[in-house]
Amino acid sequence: MIITKQKELNKILEQLKGKSKVFVVGCAACATKCATGGEEQVKAMAEELAKNQKTITGTIVLDTPCDMRIVKKDLLNNDKARQAESLVLLACGAGVQSIAQVCTDIYLVPVLDTLFLGSIERLGNFNQYCSLCGDCIIDETGGLCPVTRCAKALVNGPCGGAIGGKCEVNSDQDCVWILIYEKLNKNTAHIKKYRKIKSNTSITKPQRIKSR
């Protein structure tokens, strides 16, 4: 899931200077799970903006703002959205840009900062385990990703700086290489995977996938 957090209200108002009529858009997928852009947050944002002398022409929570088909169907021709001078978007960077691709003639104010692809431990506790490197190697590392979870992204780790099992860069985090080693070490066939030198990772991955 894409983890987002809301910007400070004064920054949002700064972006909305000179715009009086606004329409608020949320996301029923990740941003709802994150409690940053669901029904509740959209309502709260609309109220907050109204308190700050904005006229709210309407609100909507799109199923998946990152799907341009949904944007075309549910937002592009929405009358209330068309009455507004600005769309206030509670969605991640992918959602905001899908909307920008489709709704080309309206001023957009993104109000979420997009942080990472996260795994949810419980509400409000999110961990970044994968950074979408495009060349997955965790079959060789016991299902734990060093590209993301080692502060230095060492694929042939560790660095030697861990203290008491914690990362030398951030003492709140476990050194992922110690975790990897302990996991692989349980099985002699697996520990061979540690010994193999992993080659240079590639960050040349597709930015666009087209089926036809």
Binding site: A151, K152, A153, L154, V155, N156, G157, C159, E168, V169, N170, I197, K198, S199, N200
Partner: peptide, 27 residues
């Protein structure tokens, strides 16, 4: 060496590169 992470130094906002790791740099 891998090198201490930028957050431990005096340019804390610098982009950490770590494009190669020490084993790969030796190779």
């Amino acid at each position: 060496l891998s090198g201490d992470h930028p957050t431990q130094g005096d340019h804390k906002e610098a982009k950490p590169v770590y494009d190669l790791d020490p084993v790969q740099l030796l190779k």
